[in-house]
Computed example of a mutant assay.
Amino acid sequence: MRHTRLAAGLAAPGLMVASVPAVAQESPYAGMDAREIASLSQADVDAILAGQGWGLALPAELGGYPGPLHVLELADALELSDAQRAEVQAVYDAMKVEAQTAGRAYVEAEAMLSHMFKAGHASPQRLEMMLGQSADALADLRAVHLRAHLEVTPVLSDAQKEVYARERGYGGGHGDADHSGHANH
């Protein structure tokens, strides 16, 4: 009986020690503490600063409003005319410049938010201010990308939009919406 208690006493601490690293390894944030900006990976920062979409225009993209970059990538399949290609390229070029500017503002706002906490200067007042700056910057960035989809959509024919949807792998197509915000009945 004494051996049983001894074995149980020795096993229990071993189990606790063995379970500590397993818990630490399961943390979804492990390794993120080294990030310059807590909420953004380096890949996120690079994409945002490059003016890439970062998924910000998904409501438009998945709602039947083609994006300028993908329209240009699919130019041959869409049989874009020279005029269409030039118009979409102009929208894309303007969007990219605006997105890079807005993206810098968003990344800077997130960097300041992270720095506030790392430096130990967080307070409710600063938090509200920083969150407002970040939210405004993200909204501006998102608007840049969504507006570009709005600008490109009328450049394409309905047939081109259907080809776009099919080429992008969108199942049902987008012929059921009139793009004014109301479904066709």
Rank of each mutant, 00 (worst) to 15 (best):
S41C: 04
R142L: 05
H121I: 12
A60D: 09
S41T: 12
S81Q: 04
E36A: 15
D93F: 11
R142A: 09
A57L: 13
A57I: 03
L40K: 02
A34Y: 05
A135L: 13
H115M: 13
R142E: 09
D93M: 08
G120D: 07
L56V: 02
A139S: 10
H70L: 15
S114K: 08
D93I: 04
Q133K: 13
K118L: 11
A50D: 12
T101F: 09
A83V: 10
G55V: 06
Q52M: 13
A90N: 05
G64T: 02
A83I: 11
G103N: 03
G120H: 09
L56N: 02
A137T: 01
G103E: 04
Q133I: 11
R104Q: 15
A139P: 00
S41F: 08
A75V: 02
P68H: 12
V91I: 13
E73R: 06
K96W: 10
R126I: 08
E87K: 07
S81R: 12
A143V: 06
G51V: 01
D76Y: 04
L138H: 09
K96E: 12
L40T: 00
R85H: 12
A50T: 03
L78V: 02
A75K: 13
Q42E: 15
Y106E: 01
F117Y: 15
I37F: 09
A105R: 06
A38N: 02
